[in-house]
Write a protein that binds this DNA or RNA. Sequence first.
DNA 1: CAAACCTATGTAACCGGTTACATCTGTCAA
DNA 2: TTGACAGATGTAACCGGTTACATAGGTTTG
Lengths: 358, 358
Amino acid sequence: MSEITEIEPAGPSGTDRRGGASRVRLRDVAREAGVSTATVSRVINGASTVAPATRALIEDKIRELGFAPSPLAKALNLGRTRTVAAVIPTVDNAIFARFLEALEARLGALGHALVIATSNDDRTLEYTRVRALLEMGAEAVILSGASQLPALGQLAARFQAPVVLSSIYDAEAAYPTIGYDNAGLAAQAMAHLVGLGHRQIAVLHGPLAGNDRTRLRLAGAEEARGAATLTCHEGALSVEAGARATTALLEAGPRPTALFCLSDVLALGALFALQRAGLDVPGQISVMGFDNMAWATEAVPPLSSVDLPAVEMGAVTAEAIVAHLERGTPITPRCLRASLILRGSTGPAPLPQSTSIG
Amino acid sequence: MSEITEIEPAGPSGTDRRGGASRVRLRDVAREAGVSTATVSRVINGASTVAPATRALIEDKIRELGFAPSPLAKALNLGRTRTVAAVIPTVDNAIFARFLEALEARLGALGHALVIATSNDDRTLEYTRVRALLEMGAEAVILSGASQLPALGQLAARFQAPVVLSSIYDAEAAYPTIGYDNAGLAAQAMAHLVGLGHRQIAVLHGPLAGNDRTRLRLAGAEEARGAATLTCHEGALSVEAGARATTALLEAGPRPTALFCLSDVLALGALFALQRAGLDVPGQISVMGFDNMAWATEAVPPLSSVDLPAVEMGAVTAEAIVAHLERGTPITPRCLRASLILRGSTGPAPLPQSTSIG
DNA sequence: CAAACCTATGTAACCGGTTACATCTGTCAA
DNA sequence: TTGACAGATGTAACCGGTTACATAGGTTTG
């Protein structure tokens, strides 16, 4: 059974053509077991019929030699890498982190790997990253928002890779979107503030450049402002920027009675700044956030915010992509349910003190 | 020059053996250009000598057909995937997010991709994830802490993949570590509190199971406590858990004069809880954090914390791994400089009110 | 007892590129 | 003129697996 064992003295411990110690290959196992490579392949993949005795022998040899099949060879054969790419603006924001975490968990459970890259909302960088990841074998691409460079379409087409847009819902977008209604939610939040009697509202938001999620939220807020006057303040998406903008607001002009922060990161900064300024929230000024980060319940006062289904979005996106990759199921746009969470940071507008009322 | 153009009527738009529309292959380009595959390959890779006219012709055809070389075939040939795997406890913590972001940025700049998975500090899950990523072609593995399952060593050896441990420094560890001195830094922070006169200090920390980073910090704190009495409070690593533990502390027994939170996430919860309880920080109680998250400067009062070089750690780790993969440079353990940042949340211990002094 | 059939396994083409080596052509020095 | 040599390109083996198809035995059936 093993008469041909020593035919190739170099054996599995030779060196490959690039000089590194070569790994044990399938053919080494086959040789050691005295069978063909096809049979070993069958054992590895379980499927086909192999005699129990042969299977046992081969399994022994595999263990003995420490054989690990090359993922590349397999992928090349099957034309599948089972790798999905996500290019997101940043990892350093809990909302994307939650999404990524859920995405990775579900993809992992479905036997796929997640490769990531960050774009900082720079569409040129996004394109570059997508290209790099596709060239490395990613089979699908997940992006944020819907304002990609047009060239990205050709790129994806060339690699025949499906694209999914997340964090946004737009049935008309160039690719299927799996997200939420940024504009509608912002409108809902704004309507709530207006309903509480606020007429001077400051809107704090992150950079608009390349970020249609923020744009949409802003548009929604604008649309629902009713009789209220809005002043918008753009800055970096950081606690510090939120605090700074808030402090500046308090010093200049007539003080707004409510702050609508288009991200909880900014809201945290606002809360700190207001606390520092000794203003009572919501007695003197209300604060509304967006994202519903984990600390919102613990803040003083607890922060009213918009709860985004980041975790669900991760899971749903993973499922949709894998179903498409595995079974060709078309990816249908999904608008996930999100909701306004009212907590202590928003309250009725204080009675006007020096404003002339009509 | 193109007499053989129509030899194969099926052409590049046929279907592959798995039924999908086949992509344009190198050989299609070669056929269209009337040259051999070797020449096309040469053009793609730039290196070898190709006549300018031929090169131009081939480049035209490549563009015309929209040819994109298969990353898999290339990787299989070269035995390189240029993919690095990181398995971290969670993405949903700014400290890891910062690390990941820097890691990805540098790896990307060096032409490598990053695949990630999360382990939630579960060493069995970590092993499973590492295995999956190696089987998908990752060439190196980055982990957190140094308490991996022993079996992981054999796994990595089988795939001949280097392993780097991050967020920790331990010259004796089984793999090179690139991180910081958790114990020493915690000791430094504790010493500062003790130096301010605190003698009753509560230590809040996350789960110890499978997390040697937390263990080390705890050990460091213990070591430097001097005359102080420490009470430890383990809980989840969340703002909510931090707030809850703090509230519980305030209700039970003698109130500590200082809180040492082994993560800023917990410190944020503590600050909220103290604010809610109406206690003055640092007048009545000091708070020390660990991580120096971005919001620490804006908190009220600004949080004293330990600044961890997460960004540097990402860059250094990326460099070390790529250098090793590319040129065989050994990966040497590195202990990165971190520092205690003193801000307003820590102050002298208040005068004892009802304690009997010896 | 032979035809029909099933099971276990081998053979070799194939996935899509890379590259060592061979070949061919033209140039230049002797 | 011719041999040496260099540049451009082709040939085919190879990376490490998968799998369609062929084949060799053994079993069942009429």
